[in-house]
Design a protein around this nucleic acid. Structure first.
Length: 289
DNA sequence: AACACCCCCTGTCGGC
DNA sequence: TGCCGACAGGGGGTGT
């Protein structure tokens, strides 16, 4: 589920609850998510203070007070919720747990943070903070799409001579890190670029960006920023940490709108769906060239 | 190197 | 009503 805007929404929701707080206890309600929890996972977190909560691509990184960092990935269906857990409330709190509440962080201030993940594609691990940059999960990640690193010049270099479709390139976390299926579709629509175009086709023979490629960095940033402002997109599982829904799904122009009219072309053209790299792509054949 | 394809897992939805 | 297949926001591995 969660692409960059959803993970960022979660980060902002968790920060007030987690940062400068101590983890009193971590409760695992099963031994694995996508992978088994590493040995001593709970012991390494118990008693630690969380200094910062960062996001890199679709990962959440909680830096601890002992030079270690808790790495969390939400997979397709992970979500967190923050609740009060006073002593008197404890029994009631337990009763509010559901079948897919897999990890509970009990904080020393009486709050608890519960990780829920029906599909269990998410995972958590603890590694030294200093090792994050060289860790296999992070060392090959591409640029942050909301940073200045993402610009037309960068994309021209990354796309040059690539025969891969621009849609697949946007999903490639080695190029840009954090875009997922929804926002790749939406950004290409806004840029009026067909998802079927080869990457190299968006670069001139001189290696400079074409006019179409010049539009793309801004549409990516715009769609991600608007989605963050809306609290992300809630299709099934995504929740803000207070339990509220994101509402960017109401602003989708193409995603999940197969056979519905294009807002740009009117009733002349409908949104199409096709499969690229095994994922659904939604686009308008009328205005995306 | 770069691609298509498959898998992990659970839930939901539409068609019959 | 129930059953069954398709599909879902991610990402890693394999084989070509």
């Amino acid at each position: 589920m969660p692409e960059l805007p959803e993970v960022e929404t979660v980060r902002r929701g968790l920060s007030p609850a987690m940062v400068n707080r101590q983890i009193a206890q971590v409760e695992l309600r099963r031994k694995d998510l996508r992978f088994p929890f590493p040995p001593n996972f709970t012991r390494r977190l118990r008693g630690r203070e969380i200094l910062t909560l960062r996001r890199r691509a679709k990962y959440l990184l909680a830096d601890l007070d002992d030079q270690m960092s808790l790495i969390m990935h939400l997979g397709m269906s992970g979500s967190f919720r923050v609740e009060e857990e006073t002593l008197g409330d404890f029994v009631h709190a337990r009763n509010r747990l559901t079948a897919h509440d897999h990890v509970i962080f009990h904080l020393s201030n009486g709050q608890r943070i519960t990780y829920n993940d029906p599909r269990r594609f998410g995972f958590m691990l603890v590694i030294p903070t200093a090792d994050i940059l060289t860790h296999p999960y992070f060392s090959h990640l591409g640029v942050e799409p909301l940073s200045k690193m993402l610009n037309a010049k960068f994309l021209a270099r990354a796309f040059n001579e690539r025969k891969t479709s621009v849609k697949s390139l946007l999903l490639d976390q080695h190029v840009i890190a954090g875009i997922g299926n929804i926002y790749a579709c939406e950004a290409l629509y806004e840029a009026k670029i067909s998802p079927l175009r080869e990457g190299g086709d968006l670069v001139t023979k001189k290696g400079t960006p074409t006019a179409a490629l010049m539009r793309l960095p801004k549409t990516i940033k715009d769609v991600l920023e608007k989605a963050i402002a809306a609290g992300g997109s809630s299709l099934r599982d995504h929740r803000q940490t207070n339990g509220g829904l994101g509402y960017f799904q109401h602003q989708f122009k193409v995603y999940s709108r197969e056979n519905e009219p294009c807002y740009n072309c009117g009733k002349n053209k409908n949104i199409s769906r096709l499969i690229q790299s095994g994922r659904s792509t939604f686009y308008c054949p009328g205005c995306q060239k």
